[in-house]
Amino acid sequence: IFTIPALAVMLAVSFLQARQIRRMSLVLICVMLVLMVAVLYVGVEVKGARRWVSLAGLSIQPSEFLKPAFVIICAWLFAEHKRQLDIPGNLFALLLLVLVVSLLVAQPDLGQTMLVTGTWGVMFFMAGLPWLWIMALGITGASGLFAAYTVFPHVALRINKFLTGEGDTFQVDMGREALINGSWFGVGPGEGTVKRIVPDAHTDFVFSVAGEEFGLIMCFFIMSIFAFIVLRGLSIALKEHDDFTRYAVGGLVTIFGLQSAINMCVNLQLMPAKGMTLPFIS
């Protein structure tokens, strides 16, 4: 059902010029920022977090729509600063990051916070940030992670479980069991049994389900697809002469690739559990 309007949107956007993309992103980010504020008051609470808002019978997660618009606007701000140094584009991009991160932490959604912050850092690096900024951002990031560990009990619990293996590790253990059960070639489409008891098997742990039913060969194939898209995007960005286009393309494939990597790493127990979907598959 959702594929048809998604294809229509994809084709329509592909015909837009850069200026139209910027204008559309500006409108989109303004609307989504308002909805992210509204989520804190009238949002649907799921597992202790408010991330969804119900509109016309549809549940919408504003942060998902905000992410691409955020990348486009930041790319424009970085490009404007590089084009004319007296334009405080870098400062405005930093203020926008602080605003978005504040709203995400308030939900709380620390996974998306890390994703957005990491992508912003990559784009700032592409724009040629000074070494002083690199050190300052590194210290700020480490401080933010320590603060999250200290302030949010669920963050500390997940990190502790990852480091020690103690506590309730049922979800990640079942994800691992699904991958082991699938071995190299899988048990066949629809024949997975472990997937029936894996929590969030259709979203956060869909990679493990793919591994159980189609095997590790399919897992390597899925990873290869994501790697190809990211490397292809970075290759295109490298050849671009327009700063805005280069930063925008680089930022979009970065946020796409980081989200994919986080989901797959959680499934493979390479990082603490975090509820994050696998793009185009979950």
Rank of each mutant, 00 (worst) to 15 (best):
A18D: 05
A18P: 12
A18F: 03
R19Y: 11
R19V: 05
I21T: 13
I21Y: 12
M24T: 14
M24Q: 15
M24D: 06
S25T: 10
S25W: 02
S25E: 04
L26R: 15
L26T: 15
L26W: 14
L26M: 13
L28I: 15
I29T: 15
I29E: 13
C30F: 10
C30G: 15
C30R: 05
V31E: 09
V31M: 10
M32F: 12
M32R: 12
L33N: 13
L33A: 14
V34N: 12
V34K: 10
V34R: 11
L35C: 12
V37H: 12
A38Y: 08
A38R: 11
A38F: 05
V39M: 04
V39I: 00
L40M: 06
L40C: 02
L40V: 00
Y41A: 13
V42E: 12
V42H: 09
V42R: 09
V42W: 05
V42N: 14
V42A: 09
G43N: 11
G43L: 00
V44T: 13
E45H: 07
E45K: 06
E45F: 02
V46S: 04
V46I: 11
V46E: 04
K47R: 07
K47Q: 05
G48P: 06
G48S: 01
A49K: 05
A49V: 01
A49Q: 02
W52C: 08
W52D: 10
V53T: 04
S54T: 10
S54D: 07
A56T: 02
A56P: 11
L58H: 07
L58S: 07
L58M: 07
S59I: 04
S59T: 07
I60H: 03
Q61N: 10
Q61F: 00
Q61V: 03
Q61A: 03
P62L: 03
P62C: 06
P62V: 02
S63E: 04
S63V: 00
E64S: 07
E64C: 04
E64I: 03
E64G: 11
K67I: 01
P68N: 06
P68A: 11
F70K: 15
F70L: 11
F70R: 15
F70N: 12
F70P: 14
V71A: 08
I72Q: 08
I72L: 07
I72S: 14
I72D: 13
C74V: 14
C74I: 11
A75H: 13
A75Y: 07
A75L: 01
W76Q: 06
L77Y: 04
F78S: 10
F78T: 03
F78C: 03
A79D: 03
A79P: 05
E80W: 01
E80T: 03
E80N: 05
H81T: 02
H81N: 10
K82H: 08
K82N: 06
R83G: 09
R83N: 14
R83I: 00
Q84E: 11
Q84C: 06
Q84A: 07
L85E: 11
L85D: 12
D86C: 08
D86R: 08
D86H: 12
I87D: 09
I87Q: 05
P88L: 00
P88E: 02
P88C: 02
